[in-house]
Amino acid sequence: MGLADSFKAVSDSQRREILLMLREGRLTAGEIAEKLNISQAALSYHLTQLKKADMVLEYRQKNYIYYELNTTLFDEMLVWIEQFKEDKHK
């Protein structure tokens, strides 16, 4: 997926909230749903969108699925955004 998919994924406020939660570390879907006070079905949709955009990684551990940020993608996005900063040395 490209940057356009990433920016589309963060256009939703609940997905942005999920990303902020995951900044603190891995969480299960149940933990995220409880913090957001949304249904498992709604959360599943949001997590699917974030995974499609490569913003979230999924790890299975025993009976649990954990989600965490794909920091590599965020680094790439920052590099892309940095090119629009004004060069202060000109």
Rank of each mutant, 00 (worst) to 15 (best):
S13W: 03
S13V: 09
S13E: 15
S13G: 00
Q14R: 15
Q14P: 00
Q14C: 00
R15I: 10
R16T: 11
R16V: 11
R16F: 02
R16S: 06
E17R: 13
E17Q: 14
I18M: 04
I18Q: 03
L19N: 05
L19Q: 03
L19D: 06
L20N: 13
L20Q: 12
L22K: 05
L22W: 06
L22E: 07
L22R: 09
E24C: 05
G25Y: 08
R26W: 07
R26C: 07
R26I: 01
L27P: 02
L27S: 10
L27G: 01
T28K: 10
T28L: 03
T28F: 02
A29N: 03
A29L: 02
A29Y: 01
A29K: 10
G30D: 12
G30W: 09
E31H: 03
E31Y: 01
I32N: 02
I32K: 01
I32L: 11
A33Q: 08
A33F: 03
A33D: 04
E34W: 00
E34I: 00
K35D: 07
K35R: 15
L36E: 08
L36C: 02
N37K: 08
I38M: 09
S39M: 03
S39P: 08
Q40F: 04
A41V: 13
A42N: 11
A42W: 00
L43S: 06
L43W: 01
L43P: 01
L43F: 07
Y45R: 14
Y45S: 10
H46Y: 12
L47E: 04
T48M: 04
Q49R: 13
Q49I: 11
L50I: 08
L50E: 05
L50P: 09
K51L: 03
K52I: 07
K52M: 10
K52H: 11
K52W: 04
K52V: 05
A53N: 05
M55S: 03
M55H: 05
V56A: 01
V56W: 00
L57T: 13
L57C: 09
L57W: 04
E58A: 10
E58S: 12
Y59K: 15
Y59R: 12
Y59I: 08
Y59F: 15
R60W: 04
R60C: 09
Q61T: 11
Q61N: 13
Q61K: 15
K62Q: 13
K62F: 12
N63G: 07
N63T: 15
N63I: 10
N63A: 13
Y64F: 14
I65M: 14
Y66I: 04
Y66V: 08
Y66G: 04
Y67Q: 08
Y67A: 11
Y67D: 04
E68F: 02
E68P: 00
T71R: 11
T72A: 13
T72Q: 10
T72R: 14
L73V: 15
L73Q: 12
F74E: 02
F74C: 02
F74L: 13
D75S: 14
D75C: 08
D75P: 00
E76H: 14
E76S: 14
E76W: 08
M77T: 06
M77I: 15
L78F: 11
L78P: 07
V79G: 09
V79E: 15
